[in-house]
Structure formats: structure tokens, C-alpha cells
Nucleic acid binder design. Structure first.
Lengths: 336, 336
DNA sequence: TTTCTTTACGTTACCGGTAAACCAACAACA
DNA sequence: TGTTGTTGGTTTACCGGTAACGTAAAGAAA
């Protein structure tokens, strides 16, 4: 009776139950229109035989049935994107979807390579990070005709949908804030200049805000390294060696800013009296420092959640907006 | 000529090229035994027609062809697992595999629910975190007969393969280290006691080592919260309120330890003179603190990479070891 | 009684690949 | 001259579901 082997299929269940394959399929999918008796016998047989549905076959036959969603982030090791991923995964897995991940290291070419792979799995939808894509990527996704959500960096002309905020505005807001606080000689320490267009947008917004106030950005130091603590530490050291007269430094992100704080502490530079330190991102560590870091908090989990929900709404044919702004929050802190 | 529509399939290419569908399939997969002329015509037609391979159909027909690998972690928001995921993804995507993620919040039941979903996609293999699984999980994976790698927490009797280290030994090693440093009254601050069996194992190893030296663990404070900075801060506060005479505290992980450090700083407790602070995990932030944290560094990326490679080796039928120990490293630091 | 509905299921065809087996033409060999 | 290989393909059957449509039987309506 226990005809296991882990390979029972609908037909096996049909044979055992004495109904047709189609009936088994429908009963197991919860389609209505069957007697309680049939329903019970089918479901019990399925359990007893250890039936494992074959989504490959299901997706193959109907292509409506794919529950795969692709999600590409710049770096899996980023704390911020870990939270975004968590928001996406929580929202999607609750609705029965599976998430395929990828990372592109801020490189649109790598992203295209990933999209090429993912599209061949005919997913229900795709979530990308950023608004910078190769023409090939856009083409592939357009041809595939599936929902696409671009997150993180807002764009007003998305491939399909967009959920995020403006990096330019983040930088601009910080710039204005620092001007109001009386800072006049600002510097910037960043990383990965070439490829991270979003970091560049923050810098641009920052520099433009300063410029408008008549106190342009004094100097910048951009390392070709991943934006971690050490690059922040050494980046600040290099920058201050060139420009000891800076009164505030804006960092690519909180990790780098914390590295900068460590440098100040090691050199006896008083923060914020001698030098202001400002980060971006809102990593949790930043809030338990002796002095709460001045930074911009980004609603990571929310962005993931909203993106996932927008995607599912579109799959269900519900109307939704194409562009969703998820606001960031400037935290004055005690270091700026 | 440009018969786009994004839905060209092998048969379309075959028709255009004047060969059979099978020839197209083999040429595109790089099977040898075709004339250069045929090969060229087929590949060119495929490019021109914007052919996107259908892996669903391929996996369906051959079930050897699945390039999907499932990977389940306790929490996507953990910095450590972000690095593990990165190691896995880098290694697998380079070899043409796609990673489906999931998280189980340290709950074996959630893991089983995830496994049930993933197995129905007939993946090439599965990577799980931890060694604690429900019987249902083990059954599903055994029945499916696919490679399974359990990572992070080493087990000598894996479902299939295991890559990791002993959490018990981590705790034990720290215990011995602190004894040698002259500590005699040790406490512990942890989180998520019920569900995180790996954290519990570290605590057990720690307590056992202390016990063997005749200076048993004095007290512990375990919060029912995620193991972040604030729980570390308040956990230490609570613990010290009960036991002001402790001379060292072992934390569930580095985040919590940093929270503990913040508490000490806020209360004027000198570290390590008045109180030793010890973490676990080796998060990057811990190494740029004014005082380098005493902790255990875990080779996160390596574990992911090794696990992925072990899985692929098994898929290719190469011999490999079932259990791979990836050693951790105790960092003496300046806070212990 | 006849016809119409509804309920509860069954039949058929097909999704797009791939494995396995088969085949035609030609060259080489003995 | 027949046999054997090699090259370069083709044919057939099938993977396990699902959409679309068909239908028998029972009850309701006319």
C-alpha cells in the first residue's frame, strides 16, 4: 500500500483513488465542484503516498503558475540590502512565492547576465535594485512581459514600476542641514565611485546644495574599495591630510562614517566640535555609538515589502501606482 | 524577418534554419558533432530571433537540467548570513546555478514549510543552516534524493553533507581563554533562547569549560528578542543589576557585545579593567571600535563557498567528504 | 413529459524541451 | 567488394501537469 519512492504523481493518485488525473489536479488545487467524498479520498491518498507537487511541470503547462520571483541587489553583504531582502522574502513567501536572488556588484553588465539567467526560468516577476540598466536588460524584461519593480533609487520613468526614494534628495537634504548648522567647509569620503551611481547621486545632491549656498564642497576622497569601516577610516585620514581645515565630512554610508569616527577618536579630533561626521543609511550600530550618528535613515524593510506587494498586485491584475515614494528620514544625531 | 514577440522557441529556430528542433537544441547546448555551417546558422538565428531558453521546459523534460539550488538561513538580516549567502551565490552563479532563498527565523517548522515549497521545484540541491530539522524535513529531502548541505553548525551525522564548525567548541574555547586571563566570575547575555540552538550550544560549551575549571557561570540573562545592539545594552544592564560583581560577560554575538560596550561606556565601567566583554561572530564593526573586541571570527564567506562547491561536486558525481570543518579563530582583542 | 440547469466529473490536446535510438552518406579498411 | 566507422544529422516518445471543452446523471422548471 505504501507505494513510496518519493515519486508519486497525479496519475498514481488518480489510479489509486479511481478518479481521473484531472480530478486529482483540481482537488489538490482546491478547485470547487467535487463531492466531499472524492475530495477526501484524493487528499488522503496524496498524503499517504507522499505526493510532492511538481511545480516545474505546473509552470511548464500553464505559465500562469510560476511562483518564482527574481530579486537582484548590488551586494548581498550590505546590511541595508539584507533588510530589503528580508522585507521582500517575508511578503512573498507568505503569498506562496519563492525568491531567486542575485547580486550585480553595482555593475549593469552583471545585472544583465543575471536577468538573462532568471528570465529563462519564466518567473512571475522581477525586482531590480537601482535605475541604471543596460539596454539588453530592459529589452529582455520588456520582451518577457512580466512585472518588474525597480527599487531603492526612484525613477519617474520605470521599466514598469518603481519603489524607493531619491538619493539626490538625500544628499541635498544633508547639505542644507549642515549649512543651517553653520558648517562652511565640507568634504566627502566615498567608495566605488565608478559603479555606484546611487552613491554618486547623493554626492551630487550634497554638492549642489552646498553650491547653492555659496559654500561649495571643498574636497572629496573616493576610494576604489567596498564601502566598509576601514575605507572610512583611511579615507578620512587621506582627506584631512590634504585639507586639515574641513569642518564637516559627509560619508558614503554609515559604515564608512563609523570608520571616520574611529579615526577621529584615535587622533583626538573632537566630534562634532572640531569636525562633523555624517553618514547615510541608518545602520543599527550607528544608534548605539557614544554619540548618535547624524545620518539618513532608509526604510529598508518597508521598501522590500512595498515592492513585493506592488508586484503581486500587478500579477493579480489589481490597479496600483507605478511609482511609490518611500520617504527617508534625516536623523540629526550628535555628530553633525 | 525579425519575427520577435519574445517567444521564439527551438521549433521556430529550426524552421527558420532548416534543421530539426533536436539539432537546434544540441547546437545551443554546445553538443559536438555538427558542421561549422549548421552551428553558425543556428546560433545566429537564435540571436537574431531573441531566443530565450526555457529552463522550465528543460528541467521538466530531463530533470537532470535543474540549475536551481535552495538555500535557507535563520535570518536574512544577519550580517553573518549575508556573507554566507554571498559566498554561496558567488560560487553557484559562476557555475550557472540560481539560488532560491528562504529564512526560517530559527524555527524548524518554518524550515519544513520552506523545504516543502522548494522541493516542489525539483532543485538540483539544497543548503540548510543548522543541524536541527523536523523529521518531515529530513523525510522530504531523503525522498527527493538530492544533495543536501547543512552548514554553519557542524554535525557528524548529516542528512547528506555538512560544512561548518562546532558552536559548542567556540564557547568552550572562549571559556578556557577567559580562565587563563584570570577571569573568575563570568556572566552571559543572549537572545532568542528557545529557538536558536546554535547560540545555546555556545553557551553550553562556555558554561562547561568554566565548570571544568571550578569557576562555574555565575548568571545569565537571555532576552526574547532578536540579538541586536539594544538587547545587548539592556541585557547587560539587567545582568549587572543582579550581579554587580561579574568580571566578564560573554555575549550571544558581536552586535550584542557592542551594545554591552556602549552600556559600559555610558556608565563609566572600564573595559577590560572592571569588566571583560566578549562577543562572537567577527562582524567588521567590532574591529574598528576604540578597543578591538575580543571575539571569535567565523569564516562566513568561506563556509558558503565550500558548501556550494561540495554541492556541485556531488552533482557532478565527484567524490568529496561528507563533513568539512571550517575552523573559527579566537581574536584576543582588547576587551576580554 | 420535455427541456433546461446544475453538479460532478472525464477527455483531449498541448506546453517546449531532451534522451535514446535510428539513419543516410561517405570514407577507410581488409 | 563487402564491412566497419565516422560524420552529421533526424525521428519518436515522453516528462507531469493544466486549459478548454465535453458529458452523464440528477433535479428543477415549464
Amino acid at each position: 500500500m505504501t507505494e513510496r519512492k518519493g515519486k508519486a504523481n497525479l496519475e498514481d493518485i488518480a489510479r489509486v483513488t479511481g478518479v481521473s488525473k484531472m480530478t486529482v489536479s483540481r482537488v489538490l488545487r482546491g478547485v470547487s465542484g467535487f463531492s466531499d467524498d472524492t475530495r477526501l479520498r484524493v487528499t488522503q491518498a496524496a498524503v499517504k503516498m507522499g505526493y510532492v507537487p511538481n511545480r516545474i511541470a505546473a509552470a511548464f503547462s500553464s505559465d500562469q503558475a510560476s511562483t518564482l520571483v527574481g530579486m537582484c541587489v548590488p551586494r548581498l553583504t550590505s546590511g541595508l540590502f539584507g533588510h530589503v531582502l528580508d522585507g521582500v522574502d517575508r511578503a512573498l513567501s507568505r503569498l506562496g512565492y519563492q525568491v531567486m536572488i542575485g547580486s550585480n556588484n553595482h555593475d549593469p553588465e552583471e545585472e544583465e547576465a543575471w536577468v538573462r539567467q532568471v528570465v529563462s526560468w519564466r518567473p512571475a516577476g522581477v525586482i531590480l535594485s537601482g535605475r541604471t540598466h543596460t539596454p539588453g536588460t530592459v529589452d529582455l524584461l520588456r520582451q518577457a512581459g512580466m512585472p518588474v519593480v525597480e527599487i531603492w533609487d526612484l525613477t519617474t520613468s520605470p521599466i514598469d514600476m518603481s519603489v524607493g526614494f531619491s538619493h539626490y534628495d538625500c544628499g541635498s537634504e544633508i547639505g542644507q542641514f549642515l549649512i543651517r548648522k553653520g558648517r562652511r567647509r565640507a568634504g566627502y569620503v566615498g567608495a566605488l565611485s565608478r559603479s555606484d551611481v546611487m552613491g554618486q547621486a547623493r554626492l551630487q545632491g550634497f554638492a549642489d546644495a552646498l553650491m547653492r549656498s555659496g559654500t561649495p564642497l571643498v574636497d572629496r576622497e573616493v576610494l576604489h574599495d567596498s564601502p566598509g569601516f576601514y575605507p572610512g577610516y583611511y579615507g578620512l585620514e587621506t582627506l584631512l591630510a590634504r585639507r586639515p581645515d574641513l569642518d564637516v565630512v559627509y560619508f558614503h554610508n554609515d559604515e564608512m562614517a563609523i570608520g571616520g569616527l574611529a579615526y577621529c577618536q584615535s587622533r583626538g579630533i573632537r566630534v562634532p566640535e572640531d569636525l562633523g561626521i555624517v553618514g547615510w543609511g541608518g545602520m543599527e550600530a550607528a544608534s548605539v555609538l557614544p554619540r548618535r550618528l547624524t545620518t539618513t535613515i532608509v526604510p529598508t524593510t518597508t521598501i522590500g515589502k512595498v515592492a513585493a506587494e506592488a508586484l503581486v498586485a500587478r500579477l493579480r491584475g489589481e490597479a496600483g501606482q507605478d511609482v511609490t515614494v518611500v520617504p527617508t528620514r534625516l536623523v540629526p544625531g550628535e555628530t553633525g
